[in-house]
């Protein structure tokens, strides 16, 4: 079994002195998809952001470590962290279009962040991006590259976001509620995309969602979070068929079933 690539060791994250997430531990291996499930406000987004060091000035991992290989992310200098973000660690936002600057084109921004990591020519960058766009089902990749974010639809935006995340060939792909802002049809498509990604590359994927259906469709393992604490952590099959906690049972029952590829 390969070594885990991302490990949370008794992590506590606080905002302004208040612990949002407490004593969370888990590990993800390459090629594995972990689903982190919880209600709104359970702290799941915070957990993901901590892995990218994106907690802002008010947030801090006040206890524990997040290991990426042998590096502890909270202890990294800003420069070291920046070198990892976008290449080794990548994040897909809930609203990918909002995560792009409104006043510059998609192509510009892709080239910009790729140049931050290594020397790459604009044409090479565009070409790589266009390939990814096609693989992810975006028609007319050249036009997408030349567009401003506000000109793209939600579904296109999520695909662009996933493509951007994949461009750096990450070892860890984190997705913060990637389907929550989409309509049901597009949701299904994006979910299929994620399983497609698993075939494409060997990254460890962590998907944060409030929707058990997404977990059932995609995740190998699932971690249930409630009010910042881990309630369940196990393989999807085990947790969903025999949930140990009443809370998990409630979550499962509350979710409408999605037609996922695993069904």
């Amino acid at each position: 079994m390969p070594q885990p690539v991302l490990t949370y060791d008794r992590v506590e994250v606080s905002y302004r002195g208040v612990a949002i997430v407490r004593d969370v531990s888990f590990a993800v291996r390459p090629g594995e998809i972990l689903g982190i499930v919880g209600e709104s406000g359970s702290g799941k987004s915070t957990l993901i952001k901590a892995a990218m060091g994106q907690l802002g000035t008010d947030g801090l991992v006040t206890q524990g470590d997040i290991w990426y290989g042998d590096k502890s992310i909270p202890n990294l200098s800003p420069q070291a962290l920046r070198a990892l973000c976008g290449t080794d660690l990548a994040l897909v936002f809930q609203d990918c279009l909002a995560a792009l600057t409104p006043i510059r084109t998609v192509g510009d921004q892709i080239h910009e962040f790729m140049s931050a990591h290594r020397r790459i020519s604009r044409s090479e960058c565009d070409q790589h991006a266009a390939e990814l766009f096609s693989q992810l089902g975006l028609e007319n990749p050249q036009q997408v590259l030349a567009s401003y974010p506000f000109e793209l639809s939600g579904g296109m935006g999520q695909r662009v976001g996933i493509a951007i995340a994949l461009m750096g060939e990450p070892h860890v792909l984190l997705a913060d509620e990637p389907t929550s802002a989409l309509d049901v049809i597009t949701q299904t498509q994006v979910i299929e995309l994620f399983s497609h990604i698993r075939d494409l590359c060997d990254a460890a994927i962590v998907i944060v969602t409030h929707n058990m259906g997404v977990v059932r469709a995609l995740a190998d393992n699932v971690l249930v979070l409630r009010d910042g604490m881990v309630v369940e952590y196990g393989s999807t099959h085990a947790v969903l068929t025999h949930p140990a906690q009443a809370y998990t049972r409630q979550l499962i029952e509350a979710t409408p079933r999605l037609w996922g590829p695993e069904e």
């Binding site: 990218m52 994106q54 973000c85 976008g86 994040l91 995560a99 910009e112 931050a116 750096g168």
Partner: peptide, 25 residues
């Protein structure tokens, strides 16, 4: 704003964020 968080998550340096994105606004 979210786009700054996005740029940071992609590894863009603070200086570039400041001068190429924020400054225009």
């Amino acid at each position: 704003k979210p786009y700054v968080a996005g740029a940071r998550a992609r590894g863009v340096s603070e200086r570039v964020i400041l001068f190429r994105h924020v400054l225009k606004s």
